[in-house]
């Protein structure tokens, strides 16, 4: 099968590769560039674990071809921390015990990153709606929602129960 050259920016660094047209962006990131922080949970665009930011917009890297990302600016989970120092979202998730097994985590972090750019102060319902395309099987989501609230500047403690 013929291959195509792909040049793009990943986490601020120019990267290139030569790929079959059918190669997914996820496989290109994970297998060709060695960025295994992005995870594959379903490969049919439902679970959201493979979410990365493409030119600032969340995208399912399992449903996107590497050739479609030519010239794009990609941000993956590896690009969130700065010189080994976790960013405020990562810190907030750590404080909030946001995740358990960690497999869905990269997708959530990227989706939340996009959410907080668009809406720096989201309410709980907005958070839940924004995250409804990301599946987590461990947490029941409450700790993740708390982590987003904390990252958005709330103290991270759960609100009063709804009666």
């Amino acid at each position: 099968m013929s291959t195509f050259d792909v040049e793009l920016t990943v986490n601020g660094t120019p990267r290139q590769g030569s790929v079959e047209p059918r190669r997914t962006l996820a496989d290109f990131l994970r297998e060709d560039l060695g960025l295994t922080g992005t995870h594959l949970g379903c490969e049919h665009g439902v679970c959201g674990a493979c979410t990365v930011l493409v030119n600032g917009e969340p995208a399912r890297s399992c449903l996107m071809l590497a050739v479609q990302a030519r010239g794009a600016d990609i941000l993956t989970v590896e690009g969130l921390a700065n010189n080994g120092v976790m960013n405020p979202l990562q810190q907030a998730m750590w404080e909030s015990h946001g995740f358990q097994c960690g497999f869905c985590t990269p997708g959530f972090l990227m989706q939340i990153t996009a959410l907080l750019v668009e809406n720096p102060n989201p309410g709980e319902e907005e958070i839940r709606e924004a995250l409804s395309g990301n599946l987590c099987r461990c947490t029941g989501y409450e700790s993740i929602v708390n982590g987003v609230l904390r990252a958005a500047g709330h103290d991270g403690s759960p609100p009063e129960p709804r009666h």
Binding site: T36, V77, E78, L80, M93, E95
Partner: peptide
């Protein structure tokens, strides 16, 4: 105490190693 997890720094930075990450 709700000690912060020692698993989290690697999980939150994408540097964990799951079986699909073994090369």
């Amino acid at each position: 105490a709700s000690v912060k997890r020692s698993e989290d720094p690697r999980i939150l930075t994408g540097t964990g190693c799951y079986v699909d990450d073994v090369r």
